[in-house]
């Protein structure tokens, strides 16, 4: 009970911060929309999908959005370390998990709102919405956002400066994105690329998202993705709470 209250209070704090700076929500939306409008049409000429290329492309874009929504968490953490906010919370008798999870939840909720918006805009351009599949897809991608957000926040606590944080987070962003097949399905690439892609958790979410967006929930791609992402979520969130518990000098 106390845990839920703490999480709710800390979530509200971060949510208010976002609502007061709506420019971040909008700028977060611009990237997926630009991809949709300026990159999507190029795929139509490539003959990679039998019917509607947007059904293939939009889940990829949403995966990128899920990834991007969590990435910025570390920047906020470094900022709040410098203003002493995190220190003040750390001397309070509250669970370290709530301290970590409140901001993560904010990132997840913002992602879901943005994703719904992208889906609706996508449908104007011809994306076929299957609500049940899309709901499961959003659940899967939300976990991805939570993983990235908790990971980025923890790195912020560990490095305590923007430079090192930016080097690691943005340094990993490009290879992880390219190897996820979010832009184009990895299956159109050579065998060696497909093999490497399998070590990237993001790859499984992208594959599963494509299947789910078509409305197919009962498939091996979806099962694999959940088998990988659920334990990974538990692992990363647990680790992140541990980082909050540990000393910050």
């Amino acid at each position: 009970m106390k845990l839920f209250l703490e999480i709710a209070l800390l979530f509200k704090r971060k949510a208010l911060e976002t609502i007061r700076q709506p420019v971040w929500i909008i700028s977060g939306l611009i990237t997926p929309l630009l991809y949709l409008i300026f990159f999507g049409p190029l795929l139509k000429g490539l003959n990679i999908a039998d019917d509607n290329v947007l059904n293939l492309f939009l889940p990829g874009i949403l995966s990128l959005l899920a990834f991007g929504s969590g990435m910025g968490a570390g920047w906020g953490v470094v900022w709040e370390l410098q203003s002493g906010v995190i220190e003040r919370f750390r001397v309070m008798p509250i669970s370290r998990f709530s301290l970590m999870f409140g901001p993560v939840l904010r990132d997840v909720i913002i992602f879901i709102i943005q994703a719904l918006f992208v889906i609706l805009i996508g449908s104007i351009f011809g994306f076929d919405i299957h609500w049940a599949g899309s709901a499961v897809m959003l659940l899967l991608l939300s976990m991805m956002t939570a993983i990235i957000s908790a990971w980025s926040a923890s790195l912020g606590l560990i490095f305590q400066n923007i430079e090192s944080l930016a080097a690691v987070v943005t340094g990993l962003q490009l290879p992880l994105t390219l190897l996820s097949g979010a832009m184009l399905p990895i299956s159109v690439g050579p065998k060696w690329l497909q093999i490497i892609a399998h070590i990237n958790p993001l790859y499984y979410t992208v594959e599963a998202s494509r299947t789910l967006a078509k409305g197919t929930i009962n498939s091996s791609a979806v099962l694999y993705a959940f088998l990988i992402i659920v334990p990974l979520t538990v692992l990363v969130l647990g680790w992140a709470a541990q980082v909050y518990r540990k000393a910050i000098s």
Binding site: E17, S83, G84, I86, E87, R88, V91
Partner: peptide
Amino acid sequence: RKHIGYVGQLGGSDPN
């Protein structure tokens, strides 16, 4: 933690 108050050098008020 329940019985102490702490005001750090950095202050720690949420500026936003």
